[in-house]
Design a protein around this nucleic acid. Structure first.
Length: 808
RNA sequence: GCCGGGAUGGCGGAAUUGGUAGACGCACACGACUCAAAAUCGUGCGGAGAAAUCCAUGAGAGUUCGAUUCUCUCUCCCGGCACCA
């Protein structure tokens, strides 16, 4: 027997797989399909991270198991290659981003292949390939044509040092990610995608998919659906009306004043020509300016001014003064809000500006109720008792909600309404390394789409990737590229110089895998029908509210256009935990604690590395790296290798206790993989190998089965040994083992004997031993005799195969 | 502040979802092999105790024959959101 040498075996096996194309998904196969997906990596200059390996291995294990279970498996790979790090590298070095990207993807490809993932490399895609982003642009144009892409002036994050517009995700704790300078806000025209039009379905349809609960909760929080009422009020002495949204209308009788957002478009009209006009507009400007600097966000400090106007408020038969307030924003609800004692912010504001309050909700406990009555403390609790409106006096705040809403609607004061926290998606970036937005601006025709036949609008090569002083994309500096003709009127026009965010290419990439070489469409209807939706998508928790939501939105839009066959892109979504450096801190280049996969493959081998990453801990939790642990899994594989010597050549049934352990292992490994409990699946394999080592010899069938169970985790060593002990056909195309429940059941088991709740002895019995028999065996034990003493048995609880509990 | 998830040996973690707490692995110690070391194999490994035994799953209570698991109260840690009316 040769010693186990992964450095020889692994490349050899990888070549064989490549030659036999065993991981290429067939579009015409009659087998049921399985589409497993991982988030395609951003090919950074640092090479593959051990975190990539963890999630890729997990899905590889699942894909390999599915293949062995008889599915036609699609497990594709590609590169999400547009983005800042590459652009910044280009700025620093002057090397073209496309060149840097090619170099980086080459490294990633080599590393991924060395790890033996069962990717279908024939479908490899790259978001920066014009043949790919042509369709990203095409999809954008569908949004544009349906009016879901629109331009809007809005505040963006601005780094005053770098003189550059920053995306929200490039702002960390209010400072520029790159230089740490505090970020300012600046008004700029931006392309927007109307994701809010889909807010309702993005929320509701979560019920139809198998996403882990915490992903659903996080998406729901982000969408922020809120149910309430809209009320319409007239401004006193003016022919002017305000709508306002109220999500807690139970306390509407407590409302004593109204606030309006300083940026509200109707504010000017409200105070025009009055003595209040000047001070109010001045204060509003002041608040807006402070907000742009982000001051209020930090301090929650309040500011405001009385406008001199009132709204007529029929429920209370009075008029409420209108104030401008710093805590109201124009882009949630309607930007106008009625305020009451029972909202903490309103309460604070009223106290600061001496605005009268009127509590209507009181705690049961009289001491506290008195304090509320005297308006000394803020109060709002679900079990509080209402005093007004009188028809609801004595009812609990939470329980009365539905009835109060009904009554408001009936009286004609309100209509039911829904609001969302979700905002439309800012889709422009003033950057070079992204998909050009395929639009031109013509003086006569406005914004005009580039005709389909002229797509893609390719990125021109530039000399200088440095953003301009004005915050425009470097593309704006290429006058030759910017100047063009209007496709509609053939007159002079100028190209849009903004590019798309890096979320664009990743919003639909899983569709392209179905038909990655198609030159006529982003993917053919037939192939989309064959492969979509994605059956299982694993990725990072950090993408829950951005990528995952964005791609669901794109997919739903495409579904509405009849371009994809399902309304949701992913049937199932799970997430992995981060891998931290040894000591539990974040792995980073600057800290010098990054683990290099190449050297690990060299020292312990790809199989050991894969196995360790599955064994290290619960898959969905963050965990610290330990290179010693990888050495441990290498030792395990050595033992699997050495077990060859004990294998009997003749095929026969296993007759020892090992038989039951083996079947238990088949069961546990099969079930644990489905639940992504890879750590316990691996430990069960270890238990089974330990059991094998105790035997004189191991039956061939047992060894074969073990190799099959190991195959998804350690595909190379199992393939190599399968060549000796299995068949000529790849182990990865063999049939996944099935367990025999009877064999497991027949296993004898030890049962604990408890006396007064404490374990005093253990009896070894068959699984179906009766209570009387168990009692008889228990009473024979000297420990039990001793503890029983002269006591009288008062109660016996016997759980089959688990415990015998005696109370004396 | 709101929402979610945690806390178990020296370390990563396991516990059939109410049934022998610490599986499996790492580290460590001792022994075998060796001139020696590494590798490998064997033994031990929560704490206290000579032992019987007792204590122990963040803290405190409760339910139960029996609680890491269920209920309540509290502490700490991690993640997400945050002027959302």
């Amino acid at each position: 027997m040769k010693p186990y040498d992964p450095r020889k075996i692994e490349p050899k096996i990888q070549k064989r797989w490549e030659k036999e194309h065993i991981y290429q998904a067939s579009d015409t196969s009659q087998k049921p399909k399985f589409y497993g997906l991982i988030e395609f990596p951003y090919p950074s200059g640092d090479g593959l991270h051990v975190g990539h390996i963890r999630s890729n291995t997990a899905m590889d294990v699942i894909a390999r198991k599915r293949r062995m279970e008889g599915f036609e498996v699609l497990y594709p790979i590609g590169w999400d290659a547009f983005g800042l790090p590459t652009e910044n590298y280009a700025i620093k070095t002057g090397i073209q981003p496309a060149v840097v990207t090619r170099k980086n993807t080459d490294t990633f490809r080599r590393q991924l292949k060395a790890l033996g993932f069962s990717f279908d490399w024939s479908r490899e895609i790259n978001t920066t390939d014009p043949e790919y982003y042509r369709w990203t642009q095409w999809i954008f144009l569908q949004f544009f044509k349906k009016g879901l892409a629109y331009k809007k002036k809005m505040a963006i994050n601005w780094c005053p040092k770098d003189k550059i517009g920053l995306a929200n995700e490039e702002v960390v704790d209010g400072a520029c990610e790159r230089c740490g300078t505090p970020v300012e806000k600046r008004e700029k025209e931006q392309w927007m995608l109307a994701i809010t039009k889909y807010a309702d379905r993005l929320d509701k349809d979560l019920d139809t998919v198998d996403f882990s609960e915490r992903i659903k909760i996080q998406q729901r929080n982000w969408i922020g659906r809120s149910e309430g009422v809209n009320l319409r009020f007239k401004v006193k002495d003016l022919d002017m009306y305000f709508e306002m949204y109220d999500s807690i209308p139970q306390t509407h009788m407590a409302q004593t004043f109204t606030v309006i957002a300083p940026e509200h478009p109707q504010l000017v009209e409200l105070v025009k020509g009055t003595e209040f006009e000047k001070p109010v507009m001045q204060k509003a400007q002041e608040i807006i300016a402070k907000r742009l600097k982000g001051i209020y966000e930090e301090t929650a400090e309040m500011d405001g001014i009385f406008t001199g106007r009132y709204v007529e408020y029929p429920p209370a038969k009075k008029s409420l003064p209108i104030w401008v307030a710093s805590f109201v924003v124009a882009d949630y609800g309607t930007g106008v809000v009625n305020c009451s004692f029972h909202d903490e912010r309103d309460f604070k504001f009223a106290k600061k500006f001496d605005i009268p309050l009127h509590p209507v909700l009181f705690p049961k406990d009289s001491v506290h109720a008195e304090k509320v009555r005297k308006q000394e403390i803020f109060y709002r609790e679900p079990d509080g008792i209402l005093e007004e409106p009188v028809e609801f006096r004595g009812r609990r705040w939470d329980e009365a909600r539905a009835d109060i809403i009904d009554s408001l609607v009936k009286k004609g004061w309100a209509t039911k309404a829904v609001n969302y926290k979700l905002r439309d998606w800012v889709f422009s970036r003033q950057r070079y390394w992204g998909e050009p937005i395929p639009l031109v601006h013509c003086e006569k025709c406005g914004w005009v789409a580039i005709p389909e036949k002229d797509l893609p609008v390719t990125l021109p090569k530039v000399k200088n990737y440095q953003p301009t002083d004005t915050g425009e994309s470097p593309l704006a500096g290429i006058e030759k590229w910017v100047q063009t003709k209007c496709p509609q009127c053939k007159g002079d026009a100028r190209r849009e110089t903004d590019t798309m965010p890096n979320w664009a290419g990743s919003s639909w990439y899983y569709l392209r895998y179905a038909d990655s070489k198609n030159k006529e469409e982003f993917a053919s209807a037939e192939k989309l029908k064959k492969w979509t939706p994605v059956d299982w998508y694993n990725g990072g928790m950090e993408h829950t509210t951005l990528h995952l939501l964005y791609s669901r939105f794109w997919h739903k839009f495409l579904f509405d256009q009849g371009l994809v066959p399902t309304s949701e892109p992913y049937s199932k979504r799970t997430s992995h935990g981060l891998i931290l450096a040894e000591g539990g801190v974040k792995m980073s280049k600057s800290k010098g604690n990054v683990i290099n996969p190449d050297s690990l493959i060299e020292t312990v081998g790809a199989d050991s590395l894969r196995l360790y990453e599955m064994f290290m801990g619960p898959f969905d939790q963050a965990i610290a790296w330990s290179t010693d642990g990888a050495v441990g899994t290498r030792r395990f594989l050595e033992r699997v290798w050495n077990l060859q010597q004990k294998v009997e050549k003749e095929q026969r049934e296993e007759a020892t206790e090992l038989h039951a352990v083996l079947h238990k292992t088949i069961k546990k490994v099969s079930e644990d993989i489905e639940q992504m409990k890879f750590n316990t699946a691996v430990s069960q394999l270890m238990i089974c190998i330990n059991e094998c080592e105790k035997q004189e010899t191991v039956v061939l069938k047992t060894y074969q089965t073990l190799l099959q169970l190991l195959a998804p985790f350690a595909p190379h060593i199992s393939e190599e040994l399968w060549g000796v002990f299995g068949t000529d056909k790849s182990i990865h195309l063999s049939r996944w083992p099935e367990f025999d429940a009877r064999v497991i059941k027949e296993m004898s088991r030890s049962i604990a004997v408890q006396i007064n709740g404490k374990v005093r002895g253990i009896i070894l019995v068959a699984a179906d031993t009766s209570e009387t028999e168990a009692m008889r065996l228990a009473f024979e034990l000297p420990e039990v005799k001793k503890w029983l003493g002269t006591g009288v048995v008062r109660k016996v609880v016997y759980v089959l195969g688990k415990i015998l509990s005696i109370t004396i």
